[in-house]
Design a binder for these strands. Structure first.
Length: 275
DNA sequence: GTTGAGCGTT
């Protein structure tokens, strides 16, 4: 699914100036794609135009369009237009930001947080990177927090170490909510070779990281680093003090072996061990 | 064969 984003004709690769699919509401059941197209092409070139239909081909009265240039999108959005004698509304679809993209994609996990840091502190610090939707700090404090942005694109740029109020904190991707065992959500094709070695703590730790790795891959298309794994373990209260090389030394190689089921089992042991 | 808030079979 690619609508030509790489063309970069109008700065559309910049996070806030990208064209997205727009929902067109209130289309006449009699209208066809050409009618919708004709209406919106007056504002700029479309790369996509579609009316949603049921199994019988009957229009469902709404559809989606996408412009090539952001200026065009700006011109039509949240305005009322007329197609075939009916007014239609154009909006950013809700499905794009909620259902289609999980909330955790817009969320960072902040670890090693001093207990005296407030939500306002975090808001103030991270707002220089992008608009913030929510800041969550558990009560009582547990040395971590979640910061949710409006745009998922800033998230991946923040992974690593940050200094907030003189304290070094670690930022990593947030795991899916209510799913510490959401290992089944990750593509098992990622893990298909070796068997995990239950005899070594190092391997246990490495396997425990695989959901985070996989999640990272799926969400951000990059290979996670040691720092990020560190963050992941802290999320679950695991002891990660000491050299980063410590329990993480063979994380990479182990990550690529083993199955999700195995990783899940080992992860359970891992958590027991650290209690 | 009608209708009129909603959210996308790929």
């Amino acid at each position: 699914m690619d609508y030509g984003q790489e063309m970069n004709t109008d700065g559309e690769n910049e996070p806030d100036r990208r064209c997205v699919d727009l929902i067109v509401l209130g289309i006449s059941y009699r209208s066809i794609e050409a009618d919708v197209k004709k209406c919106f092409e007056a504002f700029g070139e479309l790369v996509f135009c579609e009316i949603k239909r049921d199994a019988n081909g009957q229009s469902r009265g709404f559809g989606f369009i996408r412009f090539k240039n952001y200026e065009s999108q700006l011109a039509v959005i949240n305005k009322r237009h007329f197609i075939d004698g009916r007014h239609v509304d154009v909006k950013i679809p809700d499905s794009k930001t909620s259902a289609h993209e999980p909330e955790c994609a817009r969320k960072i996990f902040v670890a090693r947080l001093p207990d005296n840091i407030t939500p306002d502190d975090l808001r103030q610090y991270f707002s220089k990177y992008g608009a913030i939707k929510d800041v969550y700090i558990p009560k009582p404090a547990r040395s971590f927090a979640f910061v949710t942005f409006h745009d998922s694109n800033v998230v991946r740029t923040l992974f690593g170490t940050h200094i907030i109020l003189g304290c070094s904190v670690t930022v990593g991707p947030a795991e899916p909510k209510n799913k510490p065992s959401a290992i089944g959500d990750y593509p098992s094709s990622t893990f298909k070779r070796a068997k995990p070695d239950h005899s070594s703590l190092r391997t246990l730790t490495a396997y425990g990281a695989s959901p985070a790795h996989s999640h990272y891959h799926q969400q951000y298309g990059q290979t996670p680093n040691t720092d990020m794994m560190h963050t992941f373990f802290q999320q679950y209260g695991a002891t990660t003090t000491g050299s980063p090389k410590g329990p993480f030394s063979n994380a990479q190689q182990s990550y690529w072996g083993g199955t999700h089921e195995e990783a899940a089992a080992v992860w359970q042991q891992q958590q027991q061990h650290y209690r």
